[in-house]
Amino acid sequence: MKFEHRTVALALAAALCSAPFGAALAYDGTKCKAAGNCWEPKPGFPDKIAGSKYDPKHDPKELAKQQTSIQGMEARNQKRIAYFKKSGKWIYEVDKIPAE
């Protein structure tokens, strides 16, 4: 029993002693642009992203995908609503809505 308590006490003491050293390596907030604005980029990361290797160059087609899908969804919803107003029946699958 005494051996287990001693082992736990030593492990706890080692953990407490190593905590200040780990905290000393953390950012201390001494290089602040303004009060509370102490963010700094990692070493080697540019101050401005535009034109650097970190600048994302998106394809306009990729950026337009979400807008295209939203427009398709709205068109399908319009067909569903128009058929519901006319017939009183709700059909979710647009392909199953009878053509006039």
Rank of each mutant, 00 (worst) to 15 (best):
P43E: 13
Y92K: 14
A64W: 00
A19R: 08
D95M: 09
G51L: 02
I70T: 00
F84W: 08
A26T: 04
T30K: 06
P41E: 06
I97P: 01
R80N: 01
K48R: 02
M73S: 13
K42C: 04
L10F: 03
A75K: 13
I70V: 09
A19W: 11
N77K: 15
C32E: 00
T68Y: 07
A14H: 12
W90M: 15
H5A: 05
F3W: 12
K53L: 09
C32P: 01
H58N: 14
S52F: 11
A14N: 06
K89F: 05
K31F: 08
D47R: 11
K42M: 05
C38P: 04
I91F: 02
K86M: 14
P46K: 09
F84L: 15
Q66N: 11
Y27G: 10
G22M: 15
E40I: 06
L63P: 02
Q67R: 15
K65Q: 10
W39H: 06
A24C: 08
L12R: 09
P43M: 12
P46W: 06
A9F: 03
E100D: 07
E62L: 13
A26E: 00
M1K: 04
K65P: 09
D95H: 12
A23H: 10
F3T: 10
D55K: 12
R80H: 03
P43I: 13
A50L: 12
T68I: 11
I49R: 00
V94K: 00
D55S: 09
Y54K: 07
F21H: 04
A75G: 05
K53I: 08
A34F: 01
E62K: 15
Y27T: 12
A35L: 15
R80M: 08
I70G: 04
D47M: 10
I97A: 03
K96G: 00
M1V: 10
A75F: 04
I49N: 06
E74V: 14
P20H: 05
V8K: 07
K96C: 07
A9S: 06
A13M: 07
K48T: 05
K96A: 10
D95N: 10
